[in-house]
């Protein structure tokens, strides 16, 4: 556990150092990349909460990201630009969607769960594609970023980045609390053995559903950040590809230790930027790295790092 806390401190310190570094290197665009990484790190963190601790492999988490993004766009168009209100709306909407779809999805197990979450995400995707009032398939441009306490300070990329990082940090602490609590232990227990949990008087269904709702609400925060970062929303945010990439990030960073998900998001996105700078065929190399990492390590890059540095789990 101490190693994990150290890793978390290191990663958050590295994040916090990006803006000064970017100004020093005279390359403010680095902050833009870093904000994007933070957004995906939030979504990956949310997914790891149910995937790593509840054994629920959701192949539809992009839907929550999209709901968060559209909360910003729809409220923004109605004149409500306050970030807090938008966050609240995103969380309420995503929780409602998670409650309904989760109650149905959790009747299934394993691969069937993977596919039914995908089905619901695809429904959400096609719903927003047909929503012409908000641009349909074309998506819509936001005229400006959200406001915070009535000020438009988020226009500044640096401030926006630190606010996003703050959200990631807060959610990380909340998630850490959750998995360390009795609720988290029940959740893990129901992953290991649902029958036994039932026998000692816990209904795994209720715990799993609550976890699913929490995770969906957290993922919607990622959508709020992403919409503000690109100043644009589109159904493409909820494409099944995005759900797949989120799984890749979580698995890449090592399943079931929260900071690994954040680390996975960093690794995946930096790697994409890095390979993209070398070659137009970056997907080929990225794919080869994914295959290579999986074959070489049982626990993603995180596991590889631990093994190479001789650390323990």
């Amino acid at each position: 556990m101490r190693g994990r806390a150290l890793a978390a401190t290191l990663i958050f310190a590295a994040f916090a150092a990006v803006p000064p570094l970017a100004y020093w290197a005279n390359d403010p665009y680095l902050i833009v990349i870093a904000s994007r990484i933070v957004a995906f790190a939030i979504a990956a963190l949310a997914l790891d909460l149910i995937l790593g601790y509840g054994g629920m492999v959701s192949f539809g988490h992009a839907a929550f990201v999209g709901i968060g993004a559209y909360s910003v766009a729809i409220l923004g168009q109605a004149g409500i630009t306050d970030l807090m209100l938008q966050l609240l709306a995103a969380i309420v909407a995503a929780s409602a969607f998670a409650l309904v779809t989760g109650a149905i999805s959790l009747r299934t197990r394993g691969v069937y769960f993977i596919m039914i979450t995908l089905a619901f995400a695809q429904m959400a995707y096609f719903f927003f594609v047909s929503l012409s009032a908000y641009g349909g398939d074309d998506g819509m441009t936001l005229s400006s970023r959200s406001t915070l306490f009535g000020s438009d300070m988020l226009r500044d990329d640096g401030i926006f980045f630190y606010v996003s990082l703050g959200l990631l940090g807060a959610l990380f602490l909340i998630a850490t609390r959750i998995v360390g609590s009795r609720f988290g232990r029940v959740l893990r227990g129901s992953r290991e053995n649902a029958l036994r949990m039932n026998a000692i008087g816990f209904s795994p269904f209720r715990y799993q559903l609550v976890a699913y709702v929490i995770s969906g609400a957290m993922a919607s925060v990622a959508g709020v950040v992403l919409a503000n970062q690109t100043k644009f929303v589109s159904p493409a945010f909820m494409n099944w590809h995005v759900s797949g990439e989120l799984i890749v990030m979580v698995v890449l960073g090592g399943v079931g230790n929260l900071i690994g998900a954040v680390f996975g998001a960093v690794v995946a996105l930096v790697l994409q930027e890095f390979l993209g700078a070398f070659t137009d065929h970056w997907q080929l190399w990225f794919g080869l790295i994914l295959v290579g990492v999986t074959l070489a390590s049982r626990d993603g890059v995180g596991g590889l790092v631990r093994r190479l540095t001789g650390g323990k789990r």
Binding site: W24, A25, D27, L30, I33
Partner: peptide, 19 residues
């Protein structure tokens, strides 16, 4: 292209000077 690559390297390894 090369400069872009270098700045990304700078970001990830903290090595390079101002662009």
């Amino acid at each position: 292209m090369t400069r872009k690559m270098l700045t990304i390297l700078a970001a990830t390894t903290c090595l390079a000077g101002p662009a």
